[in-house]
Structures are given as C-alpha cells and as structure tokens.
Simulated scan of single mutants.
Amino acid sequence: MTGRDGGAALEPLGNTPVVILVRPQMAENVGTTARAMANGGLFHLRLVAPRDGWPQERAWRAASGADRILDAATVHPTVDDAIADLHHVFATCPRPRHIVKTVLTARGGAAELRAATQRGLKVGLLFGPERAGLDNEDMARADALIRYPLNPAFMSLNLAQAVMIMAYEWWMAADTTPARTLMTNETHVATKGELENFMGHLVRELEDCGFLRNAQKRPGMVRNLRHFFTRGEVTEQELRTLHGVIRELAHPHRLPEDEKATSK
C-alpha cells in the first residue's frame, strides 16, 4: 500500500510514543486513529492481530492525509511481540478492573511519557478493541494504566477519540503556546505614546465642544476615558479609526441634498 499524501509535516518529531492498537476491528477506526496521532505529533503505529487483516484501503480513506503513518504501520501477532523493544508501556483502561497497578490520568501519563523519552527510553501506549477494550492479560503487560477523568455517567469514546486525548496531552506536555494572545493581523498593539497622542486629540475636541466644561468633574472624566482605552490592548489601527471618528464629529461634512434623500 503506497501513500497518497503526507509531506514534511508528517515526519516523526524525535523519540515519540508508539501507539499500539490491540485487535482493532474496523479499518476506518485505524485510519481516524492515524489522523488523531498526526494532530498530536505521534507517528509510530503498530497493529496487533487486526480482525480484518492488513492493509485495508478503507483506513487510508479515513486518514485525511495521515498516510505515512499507515504506510509505516507494522502488524504483530501478539501484544508481547508488539512491545518487545519498548522500555515502558502504558495501557488505557476505561473500566475498573481488579488489578493492583498505578493509574494515571491522560495528563499525568503524558508527563511520564515525556520524561521517559527525554531519557532516551522507548515507550508505548496500548489501546484495546473497540467493543470491549483491553483484557486483563493485555493490561498485565503494562507498567501503568491510564484512565480518563471524564463524566462518570457517560464515558463512551470511540477508538480515535481515545487516541486523540492522549495525542493532545502528549503535545501539550511540551507546548509553549501562550494561554492568551491577541490577533492583530497587519496592525500592532498601540504603544503608550500612540495612546497618549489619541487621548490628547480626544480631550482637545471634548474641551472645544464643551463636554468638559465642568472644571470640578473634568479630571475624573478624563481619567475614566483613559481607563476605558487602557483596559484592553487597543491596536494602532483602532486608534486611527477613532481619530477619524473624532475629526468627523468635530468638523462634520454636510451631505448634499440628494445624498440625504438616499440615506433616508
């Protein structure tokens, strides 16, 4: 099976966890799993005894361009064979089991996976079949279990969703994106000098029109205006627009009679 798409964006990013699908039942779920993996920077996929064999054309159709992951996927007869070269393996476990083993959240698991890979160790994530999940024998091979703290009244996830949660947490464990940004496009956040220039323009026009005629209230009114414009990150483009508004209000242009009639 040859790849259809891909590109530099789908090149493995260093030592990343191996995603191991144990006895997957539907090719479409394998394809959407590859798509979820690519979103979170996971690129190594192993399949243990896929029900319908491998490869399956339907998987590539569902992968939305994550073809290189499917092209490089390997098939293994048993879980033991799939994890033989790994140092640590975590298993996702949606249901309570009678097993004595460390249980991690997705976030906690991702943090431990990051720490292990930074030490040069190879790690893997086990995901069970769509219908029943991993059995006790599968989980016995894992160093720890991962259970997602979701709504206890409804914890139903499909296979790709379960992989997506771990892929997201893996990515976020090393992500440095600010929690909050302002999209300014071609403009920029106004400097204090630009804001002060605008405030001077505004205050002069307000004085000329008599808005600030009450000398006792004037300082407080100007402060309130200043607080209004400094409370958020006003952009230079917005200030230019407001300059234009002030000029137009201070020196309005009279519309010709025909334009007045049209605007009514």
Rank of each mutant, 00 (worst) to 15 (best):
D138S: 10
G14C: 10
I69Q: 06
T176A: 14
A38I: 01
R51N: 10
V100W: 09
M199T: 03
H243A: 03
R223A: 10
L239K: 12
S156W: 12
M172R: 15
V203R: 11
L45G: 00
R23I: 04
E207L: 07
W170R: 07
T74Q: 14
A144Q: 02
P149A: 11
P94W: 09
M164H: 08
Q161C: 02
E130N: 06
T187D: 06
L157C: 07
P152F: 04
A49M: 10
V245S: 05
F198P: 00
M199N: 04
G244Q: 10
D71G: 03
L202G: 03
K217H: 11
W60Y: 13
D143A: 04
L42Y: 12
A34M: 01
N136F: 09
N151M: 05
P252R: 15
F43A: 04
I246H: 05
A59M: 05
R114N: 14
A160T: 01
L182V: 06
P252M: 14
G108Q: 15
P129T: 08
R58H: 07
P219H: 07
A132N: 14
N224A: 13
A162P: 00
H201F: 06
R114K: 11
E112T: 11
K264R: 13
A84S: 12
M166S: 03
T176M: 13
L212F: 02
T230F: 00
R213C: 08
P50Y: 08
G120A: 05
S263P: 01
A82R: 00
T92M: 13
E194C: 09
L70G: 01
P24V: 04
T187Y: 02
Q118C: 12
G232T: 08
A111V: 09
Q118K: 12
V189P: 00
N29L: 03
A153P: 01
R131W: 10
E11G: 05
H76T: 07
H251N: 14
H201P: 04
L255M: 15
R107A: 11
H227L: 14
V100K: 13
G210Q: 02
G210C: 04
A8P: 08
S64A: 14
G200I: 06
T262N: 11
R226Y: 00
G40Y: 07
A82Y: 00
N151K: 01
L242N: 14
P94H: 08
K122M: 15
V203P: 01
R61N: 06
H253K: 14
A106P: 03
E196Q: 13
H88Q: 11
R23Y: 09
N197I: 13
A49Y: 09
E238S: 02
E207S: 11
L86S: 00
Q118A: 15
G7I: 05
L42F: 11
Q216W: 08
C209G: 07
G232K: 06
A84I: 06
